[in-house]
Design a protein around this nucleic acid. Structure first.
Length: 506
RNA sequence: UCCCCCGUAGCUCAGUUGGUUAGAGCACCGGACUGUUAAUCCGGGUGUCGAAGGUUCAAGUCCUUCCGGGGGAGCCA
């Protein structure tokens, strides 16, 4: 038995493939079957002159997702995605398949997610899961070779780390408990024991958010380093992201091509330093008061508005032209259907563009009037990051909007040493980190100010009572990272079985 | 919790200022075509128009409420 990913080594030789039929096309005397086996996709050709009448007939009856065994030989073929195709000599059916629900035509996201167990078999999810795997492996590789110890935090917790509104409540024997929102506080304890650690586990947030950046259950990687200040933290984050992106570019060329991912920004990410800007500077840039490489956010948004308007005009003209053709009663049926489909597609795009056009003035407004001290909104992040061609790091944030454990900036008690890494191309925050407050008194006061239950934080305060040291860490949201690297619009497509508000099945 | 959009065939969607019998494509079946890339072409039938109530001579279309979905805000990774 052979695997599709290895076929290049068997050119001119006999192979046995076991897999599933994902698509079949036919012409007289010839059948083209796309076979998948988990390692890849390959076109298999059944020619009646080569395979004989009986095998050809069998091929003709194969339905989508039938499990089969093909015997055949491999030929090089530049036209195919993997560069090879298989000429089939024999076919055995292993498992039949009837009325497979996901057809080779567009489906809505709700339908696809209702069939997630089957949708995973298709090209896009397949490619995304392979990239996700590369990313996970590279994360471990990076930290292991940097001398980190993987050490996991508990999932049941007695209290909230930050705020209480977004906790999933459950029972732990006879007392209430919550699913973890972050392993960070435990990470700090483990860093005091092991020096440099990282956690890798699921995280739960009961946010009733319906946006492309949110899940109720997602995976987080949280490194924590004793004796690291925020500068060292930022250096580590940058090295880390560069390492992982480089591994993906190396190992997943085929998948990225299949996903039609333009890799320019990914190449930049590994080759160029990440701009580091303070929150103060970022605010100036968002407001359009400060230029980056001769451009401002406001100018960029204006440009976006103009190009959207142009596109709308072109579409309207094309739709009108085609509708004129459709008015002719003598038009052939086939031609009519073809043009009607085109018109429907264009109308769809038009609707989306009009929606976008409506929003741009609000984005401009939000950017211009951005108030110092606030957190960035989605459109602000998009405007800010689109001026750069790599991820950027924003540091020294207003204390009021950040978590209680972040260390104050010396001489600026209104600021804390937090860092957000913002991914380009509209993906926004993928990493949040900080240097932690190591001063016992300031930390205790901060816990009180945030109204957190002191008794649950005694163990955490112990980390400062007994040999407290400067330390830093960060959290990476795996799904947001994968979504950005694969340029997937919504995070729910980069986890095998997503859980978010309104979705618990399958 | 708030704002915007959507709910029509198994799936994706059209359906005009309310007006005769509800319209395509895909999927499925049959046929044509000897290299297709979501193949194409010809033929074949499919509906509780999300639910309830209301306005009207007449509702898929208008109004109200509810249910489900999408996008966004807030919050965040």
């Amino acid at each position: 038995m052979h695997y599709i990913e290895d076929l290049k080594q068997y050119i001119g030789q006999e192979v046995v493939l076991k897999g599933w039929v994902t698509n079949r096309r036919s012409s007289k005397g010839i059948e083209f079957i796309i076979l998948r086996d988990g390692t890849g996709f390959v076109q298999c050709v059944v020619d009646v002159n080569e395979a004989g009448e009986q095998v050809y007939e069998r091929a003709h009856r194969l339905t989508q997702e039938t499990a089969v065994e093909f015997k055949g030989y491999v030929l090089e073929d530049e036209r195919q995605l993997g560069g090879v195709e298989v000429h089939v000599r024999n076919i055995e059916v292993i498992g039949p398949s009837q009325d497979y629900p996901i057809t080779n035509k567009p489906h809505g996201i709700d339908f696809l997610l209702d069939h997630r167990h089957l949708w995973l078999r298709h090209r896009r999810p397949w490619a995304i899961m392979r990239v996700r795997n590369t990313i996970i492996f590279a994360i471990h590789q990076f930290f292991q070779q940097e001398g980190f110890v993987q050490a996991d935090a508990p999932i049941f917790t007695p209290n909230a780390v930050e705020g209480t509104t977004t906790l999933f409540e459950t029972m732990f024997y006879d007392r209430p408990a919550y699913l973890t929102q972050s392993g960070q506080l435990y990470g700090e304890a483990m860093a005091m024991a092991l020096g440099k650690i990282y956690t890798f586990g699921p995280t739960f947030r009961a946010e009733k958010s319906k946006t492309r950046r949110h899940l109720s259950e997602f995976w987080m990687i949280e490194p924590e380093m004793a004796f690291y200040d925020n500068e060292m933290n930022m250096d580590l984050i940058e090295r880390f992201i560069k390492f992982v992106v480089a591994r993906v570019l190396e190992k997943n060329k085929f998948e990225l091509e299949l996903l039609e991912r333009d890799t320019t920004i990914l190449e930049n990410t590994i080759n160029k330093p990440f701009p580091r800007i303070t929150y103060d500077e970022a605010v100036q840039i968002i407001r359009g008061e400060k230029q980056v490489k001769g451009k401002t956010t406001i100018g960029l948004l204006e440009e976006m508005k103009a190009s959207t308007e142009d596109r709308i005009k072109t579409l309207e003209k094309e739709i009108a032209e085609r509708e004129k053709i459709l008015a002719d009663p003598n038009l052939k049926q086939g031609k009519r259907n073809f043009i009607q489909n085109k018109v429907d597609t264009m109308k769809h795009e038009l609707k989306e563009l009009q929606e976008k056009l409506k929003n741009i003035p609000q984005w401009i407004d939000s950017a211009k009037n951005f108030e110092y001290g606030e957190d960035f909104g989605g459109s602000d992040e998009t405007a800010l990051t689109s001026l750069f061609d790599t991820p950027i790091m924003v540091y020294n944030w207003p204390k009021a909007i950040k978590a209680f454990y972040m260390k104050e900036v010396p001489g600026r008690p209104d600021l804390v040493k937090g860092i957000d890494v913002l991914a380009p191309e509209g993906y926004g925050e993928i990493v949040g980190g900080s240097e932690r407050e190591s001063n016992f008194d300031i930390l205790l006061e901060s816990i009180r100010k945030h109204g957190l239950p002191e008794k649950f934080f005694q163990w955490y305060l112990d980390l400062r009572r007994f040999g407290g040291v400067p330390h830093s860490g960060f959290g990476l949201g795996l799904e947001r990272f994968v979504a950005w690297i694969t340029k997937t619009y919504h995070v729910r497509e980069v986890i095998p079985f997503p859980r978010y508000y309104g979705r618990l099945e399958p």
